[in-house]
């Protein structure tokens, strides 16, 4: 690009207003989290006298003690959510890549109609099917089980679509042919040649599937009634209960505990996540 250094007053004014606006949005994005972190260390009387403070206090452990013997169990929720999210992510990534491989590498008669069906399924939101899904799981005896939260991700149209877009330019058919000549079976070709080649795309999709499953509330709330099986978002909604009305510090701490794992993942992988969001938009 032509980079002529101009320092006319117009561009200075533009920059000043742009930076001010971005700084305001930054405060808007961060302030709720800062309030949460600071208030998690303050006692309820302190919060009641001054709800907004940027100086941490020393009641962190005392706030934590409030959770003893109550329904809100952050570590149990963490464990449950981890099982569901890992299971769903593995199913989603592996089988979506497999379906994309079927769509890209082989020439079969129903290939085009099948792809059209996948595109159409993208339009069906989960809430619409929830009544039938619940009834079906009720009669199958799968309520309070993690399976109905994990297995449906085998058929994930969005991931299949993404994988297909990624696979078309990056998977040379010659490699498959030479592997066949060397006597490799189709299943082995997929597992040992295709999967390693798809690693970058799989990593991107894994992050989004994991976070999406971790955060979902509707289906777990419908299917899980046993408090020992509650996921993290369900544990969080327990903080809404009356017993925490007088424990403001504990509420903030509970929220903080549910946010920490996500923030750690986010700041470790933010580059990949931003790049993944950008990629997802281009496909439209």
């Amino acid at each position: 690009m032509a980079s002529v250094t101009r320092t006319n007053p117009k561009s200075i004014a533009f920059k000043a207003s742009a930076y001010t606006f971005c700084a305001l949005l930054t405060v808007l994005s961060l302030l709720p989290f800062i309030i949460m972190i600071v208030n998690a260390t303050r006692s309820t009387p302190q919060i009641q006298s001054h709800a907004l403070s940027l100086i941490p206090s020393k009641y962190l452990m005392k706030n934590y003690a409030c959770f003893a013997g109550r329904d809100f169990k952050p570590f149990l929720g963490f464990k449950n959510s981890l099982i569901i999210s890992c299971g769903a992510t593995l199913c989603n990534i592996y089988f979506s890549t497999m379906t994309a491989f079927a769509l890209v590498a082989y020439d079969w008669r129903l290939r085009k109609p099948f792809f059209t069906v996948i595109m159409a399924v993208l339009m069906i939101p989960a809430q619409v099917t929830s009544i039938g899904f619940y009834q079906f799981m009720h009669s199958a005896g799968w309520l309070n089980s993690y399976l109905p939260l994990i297995l449906p991700s085998i058929a994930a149209p969005t991931t299949v679509f993404f994988m297909r877009q990624y696979m078309i330019p990056s998977l040379p058919m010659e490699i498959l042919q030479s592997a066949r000549i060397d006597g490799a079976g189709e299943f082995r070709i997929f597992n040992q040649i295709v999967l390693p080649m798809m690693k970058p795309a799989m990593a991107t999709q894994a992050i989004f599937t994991f976070v999406g499953t971790w955060n979902q509330l509707f289906l777990p709330q419908v299917l899980l009634t046993d408090k020992e099986k509650y996921t993290m978002p369900m544990m969080v909604s327990l903080l809404n209960g009356d017993s925490y009305k007088t424990e403001m510090g504990a509420v903030y701490l509970g929220l903080l505990l549910t946010v920490i794992p996500l923030l750690v993942v986010y700041f470790a992988l933010s580059k990949h996540i931003i790049a993944g969001v950008a990629l997802g938009g281009v496909k439209g």
Binding site: S96, M98, T99, A102, A105, Y106, L110, A155, V160, E186
Partner: peptide
């Protein structure tokens, strides 16, 4: 194999 690999989905 196209059919086979799309069975799980």
């Amino acid at each position: 194999y196209g059919y086979l690999f799309s069975i799980p989905f």
